[in-house]
């Protein structure tokens, strides 16, 4: 069972990812902003984190940095949108493992998570 922490301020987006991972071998945790993500990361020790970039106050990049300082091996997959190229680059520099571009397809999420989990 791979533990995935889904971070997104939009309940719709969290549900979209949850639906894709449903019935697969994943255990899902959720957080709705960056600060909660860090908290949940410590609490649940997820194997993979999917991280939205644009969130109020404490955004995905800040949370990524924070999580990577806590655990340098944390695997974070950024969920980005078109037009956020610079943010994604920045995330990669700060240790993001991979990224997915919205709107994503089922296979794209599954494939990325499978790859990330296997490394």
């Amino acid at each position: 069972m791979t533990k995935v922490l889904v971070v997104d301020d939009s309940a719709f987006m969290r549900m979209a990812i949850k639906n894709i991972l449903a019935d697969k071998d994943y255990e899902i945790f959720e957080a709705e902003d960056g600060a909660l993500a860090v908290e949940k990361f410590i609490e649940c020790a997820p194997d993979i984190i999917t991280m939205d970039i644009t969130m109020p106050q404490y955004n995905g990049i800040d949370a990524l940095k924070q999580i990577r300082t806590i655990d340098g091996n944390a695997k974070v997959v950024m969920i980005s949108a078109m037009g956020q190229e610079m943010m994604v680059k920045q995330a990669l520099v700060h240790g993001a493992t991979a990224f997915i571009v919205k709107p994503f397809k089922h296979e794209q999420v599954l494939q990325t998570l499978a790859k990330v989990a296997s490394t």
């Binding site: 301020d9 939009s10 719709f12 987006m13 979209a16 644009t54 969130m55 109020p56 949108a81 919205k102 709107p103 994503f104």
Partner: peptide, 12 residues
């Protein structure tokens, strides 16, 4: 941010 969220969800 709100427009970004609406855009993302609608595109999905």
């Amino acid at each position: 941010r709100l427009m970004h969220t609406i855009k993302g969800s609608s595109a999905m």
